[in-house]
Computed example of a mutant assay.
Amino acid sequence: MDTDGFGRSVSRSPEAVLLVGFGDLSALARDFRAAFPGLPVFTARSAAEGLGRLSAARVFVQPVYLLPGAEFERLRADALRFGGRASCGAPLLSSPEGVRALAEILARIYTGKAVLFAGHGSRRPAGKRYADLEHALRAAGLAGSFVGVLEGEPGFDRAAAGLAARGIRKVSLVPLMLSLGMHVRRQILGGDGSWSGKLEALGVSVCPVFRALLDEPAVRSMLTASARPFLRS
């Protein structure tokens, strides 16, 4: 990455793309470069950090978040500080259409399986999207699917009760997160105190899935497609 004398990232293009999120965003950055040839693509953990480094006159900021929750609100506030220089895209599940699209992707990947999707959760209004996603998954044909979250509702107890009510004794446990941080491995896929351990203690055989949503090309395509109206192709 080229920089000027002030440590700012220099772009030969008047436009640039900034992907803001946690974890490994390299595959998504490659997809954005392929979808928008000639546009430089950068990554950062926060909009303030990334916009402060970039010298391009116009920057499109793509939030790499699942929900329009607290992180997205901070991102928008940071972008506003840079005036008309920055414009923002939307998180993955910002609309009913996004919920349906993700449900259809996951239903294709896990067709025929009983699946518990475990998300981080949110106590903000956007947290309702988790329940919406469960309904959409079943409508898309994944009848034995459940969605639970670490914080808020629907929680673990509801998901475990749903599995028991349907007599499901074997389930794939899938992180409903864009990246796999330590809390995913510890709280969801880890040992005795994790969701995996709790399910095993209830007599449910668990197949843990160590894949993040961004590992799925179709999910990354959702983000590049949502950015297209804002960017030249």
Rank of each mutant, 00 (worst) to 15 (best):
T3L: 13
D4E: 05
G5Y: 09
F6C: 08
F6S: 10
R8E: 01
S11W: 05
S13W: 13
L18Q: 05
L25F: 10
R30G: 01
F32V: 01
R33F: 05
A35Q: 08
A35Y: 08
P37T: 05
V41R: 04
F42R: 11
L51P: 00
G52F: 04
L54D: 00
S55G: 03
R58H: 15
F60Y: 15
P63L: 02
P68G: 13
P68Y: 04
E71R: 12
E71K: 07
E71H: 15
R74F: 06
A77R: 15
A79M: 06
R81G: 05
F82V: 03
F82C: 06
G84E: 14
A86P: 01
A90K: 12
L92K: 06
L93M: 06
S95Q: 03
G98R: 09
G98I: 08
V99W: 01
R100E: 11
A101M: 08
A103C: 05
A107V: 02
Y110M: 04
T111G: 07
G112D: 02
A118F: 10
G119N: 05
G121T: 07
G127L: 11
K128V: 14
E134V: 06
L137Q: 11
R138P: 03
A140M: 13
V147K: 02
G148N: 06
G155T: 07
G155K: 09
F156D: 02
R158V: 06
G162D: 05
L163H: 04
S172A: 12
L173D: 02
L176F: 10
L176M: 13
L180H: 12
L180F: 03
V184Y: 03
G191V: 01
G191P: 00
D192V: 09
D192L: 07
W195Y: 13
S196N: 06
S196R: 13
C207M: 04
C207R: 08
P208G: 05
A212N: 11
L213D: 01
V219E: 08
V219T: 12
R220F: 15
L223F: 11
A225Q: 12
F230V: 02
F230K: 07
S233T: 11
